[in-house]
Simulated assay, not measured.
Amino acid sequence: MLMTVPLLAVLLVSGAFAVDLGMQRVARADMQALADVVALDLARELDGRTVNALVDVLEEKKERSLARNHDMVGSAKPDLAVTMGSSPRPASSPSCSAAHPRRCASSPGPG
């Protein structure tokens, strides 16, 4: 009886931590899945327009995507920020050509 009470308290605390860590993992997976879905929805709008032309469109699409994908752990609406990145352009110097790929610093190479 003397060992039962402390052992029961330790088991109760361990169980609470296990449930809490499980909820954290589920919430993190939900947030990652939501970010992936929103990114894919927004990627469909990338059609060659400039960043300035896309700002309003992407913000509207982000809100629609968030509203459509609301089934996640937790009741608070996540705060997602849309940031536009850029990809490097290939070198376009006269000495950089397909005939001389070693002269190109960022040559993708054949095939």
Results as ranks from 00 to 15, higher is better:
46 L>P: 01
55 V>P: 00
47 D>Q: 03
11 L>Q: 05
64 R>M: 12
31 M>D: 03
63 E>A: 15
98 A>L: 15
57 V>C: 02
84 M>K: 03
45 E>R: 14
75 S>C: 06
44 R>Q: 12
38 V>G: 01
37 V>R: 02
75 S>L: 13
68 R>A: 15
74 G>P: 13
58 L>V: 04
55 V>Y: 04
43 A>H: 04
11 L>P: 02
35 A>N: 01
61 K>I: 07
27 A>C: 07
40 L>R: 15
16 A>Q: 10
65 S>G: 08
39 A>R: 08
76 A>S: 12
63 E>D: 15
62 K>P: 01
61 K>G: 02
85 G>E: 07
4 T>L: 15
63 E>Y: 06
105 A>G: 10
102 R>H: 07
85 G>H: 05
103 R>I: 02
56 D>L: 11
5 V>D: 06
111 G>D: 06
32 Q>H: 12
96 C>W: 08
106 S>L: 07
77 K>Q: 08
101 P>C: 00
83 T>K: 09
54 L>T: 02
90 P>E: 10
43 A>Y: 03
43 A>G: 09
16 A>R: 09
97 S>H: 12
86 S>W: 07
37 V>L: 05
82 V>S: 05
30 D>K: 08
111 G>Q: 05
72 M>T: 10
19 V>S: 03
75 S>E: 14
32 Q>D: 14
97 S>E: 08
24 Q>W: 03
47 D>P: 00
78 P>V: 08
83 T>S: 06
